[in-house]
Design a protein around this nucleic acid. Structure first.
Lengths: 345, 345
DNA sequence: GTGAAAGCGCTAACAC
DNA sequence: GTGTTAGCGCTTTCAC
């Protein structure tokens, strides 16, 4: 094949350790040792080899090196919430973009590569999947097969949000969901709400269950009966619109707290189309900020998570885990509440 | 080392082709052929081997397979604009998050893994860097060393934004920068601006030069002298604030068009702090939307790029390139102008 | 139709 | 101090 116009194979042919050895007039072992600071070589040979390697622009092939059991300098990121969504369309899934961006910058700043991997349990398995040094799994759900798979293969991992049903597993980081929930609920109460309905998703992840728990206990504290609605994440804005009808039929609460921005936007839209004033009659708040909460009219108050802080913490934990240490975990970050028009009275 | 509690090495030890061969009572060649649909095997053996492999949960090791020259099912993404920025803090670098998110979802939807790689030319080189099937390089600049490196190693790549100084290189996609610029300029003119100053960045990428070219020709068409300012991307909001002083000293234009959201926010802030009314006296617009343009007061009109469309196009091109085809390229997408308070008269 | 064997580039025992 | 050599798991000729 013409070397100038194409490539015989997907893999680029670079300078090998053999080339360096020949050029430096030593054995490949010498090169390997010199470059990895192992073995016993005279300072002179070591330096000489290093120079030759540099001159030639030699870079060890990660694949070959990896085969001999070493670290790849790359961690995987698997987005369970998106896997669950079925497609990978990110529109409106703010957390997704934010978290990926944050995790990427955190990883890059640490000199690590970050590999985004499609659902590990669906075949064909992404070829490099099992070659990563470790994994970040976002929002694992109860009995998550990806987590099980990583466990089985002995690959270190950390999770964004605790793994439900596994209280013993400490290697996670997340915003303080309970605190977040109270932040919103107290805000609504301060603005005069007595009865608050909660709209949670159906995914069995910590995010949903923690918020629900905080909500029920908040209601209990105030002697209020909880009004809990479940709406599938994938139902999106439309699902919220439909749900608004049911909520109204059940009797209007003073406020509705939706965990996702899309549900919040939908519920608000649905309420208003029934002639319910927002925020006048009912206030609306979202548990995670997105284009939908920002773009709605009125704009919707929402929690902004801390993906930068969380992903940084996760990478810290993961790095020590890979290094064989015992990191302190979990690590908790804080969300911030943006008060917008939908709760302004 | 205890097999149950830890791992000897970073690499997980899975089921190998040997195990399958032994269990199925055939040679490893047979297994390889059966699983890859190569060679000549009887349908019976083939089926039998497939079954055994499935039962055992066998998955070929990508590293070993990769060594024998095949495809990794993963493409790399290298963000030149961020590399240039020096750190990988994404705050306010909307395009970054948006593009990464979009590229990720596009890649995942195609069953490809996407690996974010730190600057390829800085050592230590990310180990897996040269093992990717191909690369997306965002905003390459003139004589970009990363592009040169990929060329040298014969690794296929596509660029987000054309590669300056390489008009012959067709494998890129981007918004139509010239059209974007005219969109903004015409909008400003329609709102009554006669003189418009342009604030571009200093990176030698297509984004900056295309916008500048469109701007100068727009000015020429109207017989106006161009007023061009250059401000380093990394100068951020503060740089914009400082620049506002210079712009005012040079005589206020009717509008300022800043290519980055941070510069726009800074310039607007700087102008207002000098008592210049925005949009009353001077209008401000940004060439790329971000928290900064949305969050400024008044909110700043800005172009929203099409990262989803662009990254989709890029992956299409890259995939055919990897497959050894000759894709049609370049592919152009369109930006959208959000008209906000900063240009509302 | 099937399998033995040669390597891909690298690391690490183990000789010398 | 330095080099020989045996693999890591896989694909692929090439005998049988």
């Amino acid at each position: 094949m013409d070397e100038r116009t194409g490539r015989e194979v997907a893999r680029a042919q670079g300078i090998t350790i053999k080339d360096v050895a020949r050029r430096a007039g030593v054995s490949i072992t010498a090169v390997s040792h010199a470059l990895n600071g192992k073995g016993t070589l005279s300072a002179a040979t070591r330096a000489h080899i290093r120079e030759t390697a540099d001159e030639m622009g030699y870079a060890a092939d990660a694949l070959a090196r990896g085969m001999r059991s070493s670290t790849m300098g790359a961690v995987g990121l698997v987005l369970r919430s998106l896997d669950a969504l079925g497609d990978y369309k990110p529109e409106g899934v703010d957390v997704f973009e934010k978290f990926v961006g944050a995790a990427a910058s955190q990883a890059l700043a640490r000199g690590l590569s970050l590999m985004l991997v499609p659902d590990l349990t669906r075949s064909p398995v992404p070829p490099l999947a099992f070659s990563m040094d470790g994994y970040i799994v976002t929002n694992p759900h109860r009995d998550d097969p990806v987590v099980a798979l990583l466990d089985r293969r002995g690959i270190p991992y950390v999770t964004y949000g605790s793994a439900p049903g596994r209280p013993d597993f400490p290697y996670w980081a997340s915003e303080d969901d309970a605190a977040s929930a109270r932040l919103v609920l107290d805000h609504l109460a301060a603005r005069g709400a007595r009865t608050v309905a909660l709209v949670r998703g159906t995914d069995a992840n910590a995010w949903n269950s923690e918020h629900e728990a905080a909500y029920t206990s908040w209601c209990a504290d105030r002697g209020l009966p909880p009004r809990l609605y479940e709406l599938a994440e994938r139902a999106g804005v439309e699902g919220g619109v439909d749900l608004a009808r049911r909520i109204a039929a059940d009797g209007l609460p003073d406020a509705v707290f939706c965990l996702t921005g899309r549900h919040a936007a939908g519920v608000q839209e649905g309420l208003m189309s029934q002639g319910v004033e927002v925020p006048g009659r009912v206030m609306v708040a979202a548990g995670s900020d997105s284009e939908h909460s920002r773009g709605a009219r009125p704009t919707i108050s929402a929690l902004e998570l801390d993906p930068v802080g969380s992903s940084g913490a996760l990478l810290d934990i993961l790095q020590s885990l890979i290094a064989g240490e015992r990191p302190t975990a979990p690590r908790i970050t804080q969300a911030h509440l943006w008060e917008r028009a939908s709760t302004k009275r």
